[in-house]
Computed example of a mutant assay.
Amino acid sequence: MTRHSFSFGPHYDPANLGFGPLVCHNDDLLEPPAGEVAGYPEHPHTELEIVTWVLEGALVHTDAAGGRHVVEAGRAQVLSAGTGVRHSEVADASSGRCRFIQAWLTPSVAGTAPSYVLGEAPPTSSGLVDVAGGDGLPIGTSGARLLVARLSPGESVVLPDGPRQHVFAATGAVSLEGLDLRAGDAVRLTDEPGRRVTATGPTELLVWSFA
């Protein structure tokens, strides 16, 4: 099951093609039947920065060049597709179901060589932490940052400065200065720096910020 924040594949919406360089923000849940594989068989990508953040279980990436990466819950992967890659993405059978968020961004420079990089989970109780861009994993989209916070009820964070913010409640629930977001909800902010997000339940918050 996949929930799309933007126009994607057959779900075409010309009024919702992206937000700045962010052209895809998918919430995927893979539930493999017993003895079977769930996920996406080998497929191509070109000229995209693809950021995957696993919330539950583990996701196995296998590419046509023989590379294999297991991205466990609380880890991120950045795939710079560049001139072209082919890969598959399936739930790790030993970990059961897998839920992950995947974002696609347009790169600042075209024609680069494909590459993968993996990162660890940010520390808990440390507010918003860069996962990709900024102090996090390198990403080929200038000014783009993915920040993650794990919040206890009543805990709050201030959104980073930037002309565009994509705020997503992956789990739990938050209040964005009176606007309530439940798990799976997102809001897009333009030229509204310094907004405060407060958790109303145990929450994992994902924020894309664009300079």
Rank of each mutant, 00 (worst) to 15 (best):
R97Q: 02
V37N: 00
W104V: 01
T141L: 00
T198V: 14
D92R: 01
T141C: 03
S115M: 13
G201F: 00
A199S: 09
A144L: 13
P193L: 07
V54M: 01
C24W: 13
G39S: 04
V148E: 10
G18R: 03
Q77D: 09
V117E: 13
V70Y: 03
G9K: 08
H69L: 14
E177Q: 15
R196M: 12
G154F: 07
E204R: 14
T52K: 03
V207Y: 02
A132Q: 09
A132C: 12
V70F: 03
W104M: 03
A121D: 06
S95P: 04
G74A: 10
A169R: 04
E47Q: 00
V23G: 09
A15D: 15
V207E: 05
P123F: 11
G143L: 03
T200M: 11
S152L: 10
P107H: 04
L189S: 12
G66M: 06
T106D: 07
L189K: 10
L22M: 14
E47M: 00
S156F: 05
S94P: 04
L179Y: 09
S142E: 10
V158A: 15
R3V: 12
T190F: 11
T141K: 00
F210R: 02
G154V: 09
C98S: 06
A144G: 03
S80R: 14
L128T: 03
G178M: 07
V157D: 05
L79K: 08
R75K: 13
P21T: 00
A64V: 12
G127D: 09
N26D: 11
P122K: 07
R150G: 14
T203K: 09
L29M: 07
A199D: 07
D180C: 12
S142D: 12
S7C: 07
S125L: 06
A34M: 04
A170E: 04
E192L: 02
V23N: 09
G111E: 13
H43S: 05
S115C: 12
A93E: 06
A34I: 05
G140W: 02
E49Y: 05
L189R: 10
A113C: 01
F210I: 02
R75W: 07
T2V: 15
A211R: 05
V90I: 15
E72G: 09
T190Q: 13
G9I: 09
V148M: 12
H43M: 07
I139V: 15
R195G: 11
T141H: 01
W208E: 08
A199R: 08
F210D: 00
H45V: 02
W208M: 06
R145W: 04
Q77F: 08
A93K: 01
V71Q: 02
V158M: 13
V158R: 15
G18Q: 01
F19H: 08
